[in-house]
């Protein structure tokens, strides 16, 4: 443990240097015209574009971030609802799983983006489309993880609960779900990343708003610094959401981490 902490501190320092060097090199090469300035504007120009689009004037980037976040979250929530409930139900009732299995096994490996064109036919180009595709993509990892988690519940736990005469519903609520929770959460984490990718994709392919649209639009009208600013924003959103998730996970799943640590000792 100590060793790892030590390593992390060291990484932060040299790492910062490497990143600074990378961006300084970019700035220099671009200013000198050694790399094509029109395509690779200096970092300072990009940052300036980012600040301008975020904080000044009509704050275009902020509007688009709003659209992107709204769609991503709405789709993600649907994915959580559908994936968790479907996974729990099929995990508990084996015969339901057997009935649904072939259908699920056909739909699950299908790349979510391939259904965009068909979804356009049904839903047009509005936010509903983005939300549907995101929900579709986010559902599967959560479903698979929930199913695994529920099925992997220690039978001793279930039998103990049965011995204590807990009704079926209480067993599900008090034994199965808590014990499957770590799996379920890891499904949520995978799906969060998926949701972010898919929101950008759907916006690039169909939408007239959102960060995906913004970077496509700016690149097609050769506003290259703005395009990079949009990418920077996507990266920041991705980073912040991931960090937020880890924080929430540490907070709410602390009981689980304590438990497993104790068991390991």
């Amino acid at each position: 443990m100590d060793f790892k902490h030590h390593l992390r501190g060291e990484t932060k320092f040299t790492g910062l240097l490497v990143i600074l060097f990378f961006f300084a090199l970019w700035e220099f090469l671009s200013r000198q015209g050694i790399i094509y300035t029109a395509y690779f504007p200096p970092v300072t120009t990009i940052v300036e574009a980012f600040v301008r689009e975020t904080f000044l004037g009509d704050r275009e980037l902020v509007t688009h971030v709003g659209f992107t976040l709204y769609r991503a979250f709405a789709g993600y929530l649907f994915g959580i609802l559908i994936g968790t409930s479907l996974g729990t139900v099929t995990g508990i009732w084996r015969s339901l799983y057997q009935t649904l299995e072939p259908t699920i096994e056909i739909l699950r490996p299908m790349p979510s983006v391939a259904i965009i064109p068909i979804a356009i036919l049904f839903m047009g180009m509005g936010s509903r489309l983005n939300i549907f595709i995101i929900a579709w993509a986010a559902t599967w990892p959560i479903f698979v993880n929930t199913l695994d988690g529920v099925r992997g519940v220690d039978l001793t736990l279930v039998n103990t609960a049965r011995t204590f005469q807990l009704p079926r519903r209480a067993i599900i609520r008090k034994v199965m779900i808590p014990s499957a929770l770590p799996y379920i959460i890891s499904g949520y984490r995978i799906s969060l990343g998926t949701a972010l990718v898919v929101v950008v994709v759907t916006e690039m392919v169909v939408s007239g708003s959102g960060l995906g649209f913004y970077i496509m639009n700016t690149s097609q009208s050769f506003r290259i610094p703005e395009m990079f600013a949009g990418m920077l924003m996507i990266a920041i959103v991705g980073y912040l959401l991931n960090t937020l998730f880890v924080r929430l996970d540490n907070h709410f799943m602390a009981w689980h981490k304590r438990l497993t640590k104790k068991e390991a000792v």
Partner: peptide
Amino acid sequence: RPLCPPAIIPV
């Protein structure tokens, strides 16, 4: 890493 793959398509 936080920069999702489709976002690099325009560049």
